[in-house]
Amino acid sequence: MSAFFDSISSTSSGSVYATPLTDYAVIAATGADALAFLHGQLTHDVTGLSPDVARLSGYCTAKGRLLATMVLWRAQPAADEAADAPQLYALVRRDLADALVKRLSMFVLRAKAKLAVTALQVTGVWGEPADVDALQTAAGGALPATPWQRVDLPSGTWIAAPLVSGGLRWWWIASQAQQDQASTLATQVQRGDADHWQAADLATGLPWVAAATQDVFIPQTLNLDLIDGVSFTKGCYPGQEVVARSHYRGTVKRRTAYGQWDTMDTVPAPGTDIYDARQPQEPCGRIVDASRSGALFEITLAALDDGDLRIGAPDGAKITVAPLPYDLADGGFKG
C-alpha cells in the first residue's frame, strides 16, 4: 500500500472513494515508430487516437484469439520531448503484462519502438457529482466527466471510466512521486473497496482478459465490436482476417452477457464453465471475469435466450442474466 492510501483521512465526510487497483499495470511504448508499430498490432486505430481520449483495444493471435484487452491513451506531447519519451500507454491486467511486453517486443524488429511495464500506480476513484468540485481542486484541474475522456493534471492522468448509474468514475494513473505529493487529494477521499470498482466494470460490460483467459476469446465474443474496441477500417493486425470475416458474414454465435447471483461462497475464477441445467452434457459458456456479486460470462446465444444457467456444474449456483448498458444486437456504450 502506497503512502497515499496510508494518509487517507478516516474522518472524510465526502462521498468520493479511492482504491488501489493492484491487479492492473501500465505499459509504456516509446520511440519514433511506437505508434505505427502498435497500430499494426492492436485491434483499434492507434495512429488516429486523439490525445484527449482513451480507447478500449485488444491484441490477438494470428487466429484472432485475444491475448489481452487494454485501455489505450496517447502521451500528451511536450515541446521539448526527448526521442525516448513515451508515445502511448496501455492499461492491462498485471498477470499478463510481462508476457505481453515480451511477445510484442518479438515483432518490433527494426522499428524504433520499445515497450516496458512501468512503475505507474493505478487507482480507481468514484464519487457523486456534488463532491467533484473539491476533488478537482485537490487533483489540480478539471476532471473529465464523459466516459473515455482523459486529462493530464499535476496529480497524474485521469481517465473517465464507463458507468451504468449515477456518479462518476476515473482511472487515476500516477507515479509514486505524484501520489506522494497528493496530500490534499487524500483528504478528499475515503478508502474504497476494489471489488466495488470491479463490479462496476462488469456491469458496464468492460471485458478484461487475464492470464487464465488468454487465447480463448475472439473480440466479438467479448463484445469488443459493440463497445468501440475494434476498428474495421484501420488495416491489418494479427487475426484481422478472422475478426473481419466474423463481422461481415454475421457468424457470431457467442456473446458476453452480464449476470448476478444471490450467494456465492467464493468468487468464480475467470475461465470457470457455465452450464445450462436443462442441457447438462457440456458447458455452454465460461466466466470472463467476476466480482462478489456478479460476472461477465461468454455464452452461446441459444443458451442465453432461455437457458437455466449454472456456475461450475449443472447443479451449481444459479446465475441470473441482467441487462448490459448496450444491446447485443447493435451495441455501444451509453455512458
Rank of each mutant, 00 (worst) to 15 (best):
A3M: 14
F4N: 02
D6V: 07
I8G: 09
T11H: 12
S15T: 15
Y17V: 10
L21P: 01
D23Y: 06
T30W: 02
H39Y: 04
H39Q: 11
Q41N: 10
G48F: 12
A62R: 09
R65D: 07
L66A: 09
A68K: 03
A68D: 06
A75Y: 08
P77D: 07
P77F: 05
A78P: 05
A83E: 14
L91D: 10
R93I: 12
R93E: 15
D95W: 08
L96P: 03
L96E: 08
A97N: 02
L100P: 01
L100G: 01
M106E: 04
V132W: 05
D133N: 13
L135C: 11
Q136T: 14
A138G: 11
W148Y: 13
D152W: 02
S175E: 04
Q178H: 03
A186P: 08
V189C: 13
R191G: 13
R191Q: 15
A200Q: 13
D215E: 15
L222V: 13
D225V: 04
D225E: 10
G229V: 05
G229F: 01
V230R: 00
R249C: 10
R255W: 04
W261S: 12
D262R: 13
T263A: 14
T263P: 06
P270Q: 05
D273F: 03
I274K: 01
I274P: 00
P280W: 01
E282D: 14
P283T: 09
C284M: 13
S293L: 08
E298A: 15
T300P: 02
A303S: 15
R310Y: 05
P314D: 06
A317I: 13
V321R: 02
L324Q: 04
L324V: 09
Y326R: 07
L328F: 03
A329S: 14
G332Q: 09
